[in-house]
Nucleic acid binder design. Structure first.
Length: 581
RNA sequence: GGGCUUGUGAGGUAGCUUGGAUUAUCCUAUCGGCCUUCGGAGCCGAAUACCCGGGUUCGAAUCCCGGCAGGCCCUCCA
């Protein structure tokens, strides 16, 4: 917001003027921070050396030489070697309210930048339903994509579908060869029976049986290898069958994703880079570089030791001995494809992909590319009993989590609102349940592993998704009760400490989005949303909003501002913003 | 064995990239308070924390080195 930027700039300029007049070099470093007890603080420790003065004395001297109030700066106080600045809150609030009235629902949204951003996320192997461990990927990826859209970028989200290799071949074999009896037996042996009639949930049992059989039946290994060989030789019926099975599974996966408001713009199939020769082209180009070499039996590799990769991982193999390509080889072709379509390429990846991603980046450099993908890694979600595994059946499925959360939300709604129709209770329960799930997963920093807990995931109090939705509903309810009123953007009418606190919180929205854009730390968004919601609740408790009086319309305009900010935060989080709940 | 990463009150978590103070954030649970005003999925208050040891610095949760503990990776797998 312009008032905030102006305030920060003016504080810095004024301090710089005075400090240089006192004898400091013109480029002296000025640190700015936002403390609790002021709107901006500038520590004077960095000036101590050039000025040969104690920081406390410097702060006092600067403060005394400043002619305030001036413009948007309301005042300054020296304390412990710091300069604590206060903003003219009336000017800030006026600016905020004017912008809200002017931009309406688009408040916080930036003008189009023309920057094309590709966010690849999810991309799980189509061999089973999405489980909670993997769900972190679409939720982080989708949230980031939504934030970047709010920033005005031209964003495409994309799922890279793995339809090549042993796992999907195994999957297709399982669909064709595992008998219904074997599936039934497997279901009976599974501790918690999964009776969901959904294609991915059904077929995962075939996959499990097949994986067990490989260990038990020696001939099967050869059978799979034969399919794999046919696949790689370009045998069309084999390829088609694999792809068809992958598509079927993908259908189930997409249903799960849709249930948590995740929709991908585009799907790219790994096999296309074999079919169109791009992967072979990568092989040729890598082989012609000075880093390239061959093992005794003929597999090609490049040596990455000059590219910041240490230890025994420096040899990155990109063909098998028989010359066929490997996963990362195809991924190289895929990245070149993405570079041709986007200015920024973001890959949301599990932390197990770190080395692979590093090798990929290095290989791209060897190939002469200057572009680099921006990886966003997340650590795994595990269960109290250990890591989740589709093959072993140690999982909590996303579908089950969403159902459970929705059921609980339904009970909550029902206990509070006897006046609503069954239909709207169901709709609200869905919004609240899904919101709780998404919020709970994005709120933790991506590099932090966490252990899934039903209790946490289903929490609707405090730092939770429903808390934000509740405050949004409260704001809506106030505005509805208020009836017709004129917008009033006069900030001087809002002088209560809670009104000011709320306005200041709202004015940070754009800055938060900017930081997310730059750092990709999506967890800042739920934290910000919670801050806004909490401040609003304080304001709500302390100030009789609807009370008649001079400030009423301005106060309602502030409530409108809160509603818009919360709505947009929820939108970025992929959560619905019900008007009542 | 090598590399990467995480370690913050009873539990969880923010802050760490770009080092700052006056009270290290927020949530849950615990204890105490608030329903004669607009929605109690709420508000106010109390108590409890930077893994250990060195170093750099006027100043370290933050940077560096070394431990310890968890996770991930080190496939001619995907």
């Amino acid at each position: 917001m312009k008032a905030v930027d102006q305030f920060v700039n003016e504080c810095e300029t004024k301090v710089r003027e005075i400090v240089t007049a006192m004898g400091a070099p013109a480029d002296v470093k000025i640190v700015k921070e936002i403390p609790d007890n002021a709107d901006l603080a500038i520590p004077c420790f960095t000036f101590a050396k050039p000025l040969k003065m104690a920081p406390v004395a410097i702060a006092e001297k600067i403060a005394s030489e400043m002619k305030l109030p001036c413009g948007i700066i309301a005042g300054v106080k020296p304390l412990n070697g710091y300069l604590n600045f206060d903003i003219d809150s009336s000017a800030l609030i006026t600016d905020l309210l004017e912008e809200v009235v002017e931009k309406g629902a688009d408040f916080g949204k930036s003008a189009p930048t023309g920057i094309r951003v590709n966010v690849e996320h999810t991309s799980t192997n189509p061999t089973g339903p999405v489980h909670v461990g993997r769900a972190r990927n679409p939720i982080i990826g989708d949230t980031l994509a939504r934030c970047l859209r709010m920033r005005g970028h031209d964003v495409t989200t994309e799922y890279y579908v793995n339809d090549v290799g042993k796992q999907v071949v195994m999957m297709s074999w399982a669909v064709a060869n595992v008998t219904p009896e074997e599936v039934q037996k497997e279901i009976e042996e599974t501790e918690k029976a999964d009776d969901r009639d959904k294609v991915d949930h059904r077929l995962v049992f075939n996959y499990r049986v097949a994986n067990k059989k490989v260990f038990q039946v020696p001939e099967m290994e050869a059978e799979i290898a034969e399919i794999l060989r046919k696949f790689e030789a370009g045998d069309q019926p084999t390829i088609d069958h694999v792809k068809k099975v992958a598509e079927t599974m993908l259908g189930g996966i997409n249903e799960s994703l849709a249930s948590i408001n995740v929709k991908l713009d585009r799907y790219t199939w790994e096999s296309t880079f074999i079919a169109n020769g791009a992967a072979k082209d990568v092989v040729r180009r890598l082989q012609n570089t000075p880093y390239s070499g061959k093992t005794e039996d003929g597999a090609s590799y490049v040596d990455l030791k000059d590219f910041g990769i240490h230890g025994k991982n420096t040899k990155f193999t990109f063909t098998r001995a028989d010359g066929t390509t490997l996963y990362t080889t195809r991924d190289l072709a895929y990245h070149e494809d993405k570079f041709s379509r986007a200015d920024r390429v973001i890959d949301v990846l599990g932390e197990d992909q770190k080395l692979g991603s590093q090798q990929l980046t290095a290989a791209l450099q060897i190939m002469g590319r200057t572009e680099k993908p921006e990886p966003l890694f997340y650590a795994f979600v595990s269960l109290p009993e250990g890591r989740m595994s589709t093959r072993k059946g140690v999982v909590v499925y996303l579908d089950d989590l969403v159902d459970e959360a929705t059921d609980r939300a339904y009970e909550e709604v029902k206990s509070r609102r006897s006046d609503l129709s069954e239909e709207s209770m169901r709709a609200i329960a869905r919004a609240v349940g899904v919101g709780a799930v998404r919020y709970n997963i994005v709120r933790v920093g991506a590099d932090k592993q966490f252990v899934f807990s039903w209790q946490e995931a289903l929490s609707f109090d405090g730092n939770s998704g429903p808390y934000l939705q509740y405050v949004h509903a409260r704001a809506c309810s106030l505005l509805k009760k208020a009836g017709d009123f004129e917008w009033d953007t006069d900030g001087s009418k809002l002088t209560d400490e809670y009104e000011i606190k709320l306005a200041k919180a709202l004015s940070k929205f754009e800055g938060v989005l900017k930081e997310i854009d730059e750092s990709k730390r999506v967890n800042m968004l739920p934290a910000y949303g919670h801050e806004v919601a909490a401040v609003f609740n304080q304001f709500y408790a302390a100030v009789p909003v609807l009370q008649a009086g001079e400030g009423r319309n301005a106060r309602l305009t502030l409530v409108q501002a809160t509603k818009v900010v919360l709505k947009n935060v929820l939108d970025c989080l992929g959560m619905e913003a019900p008007e009542e709940m």
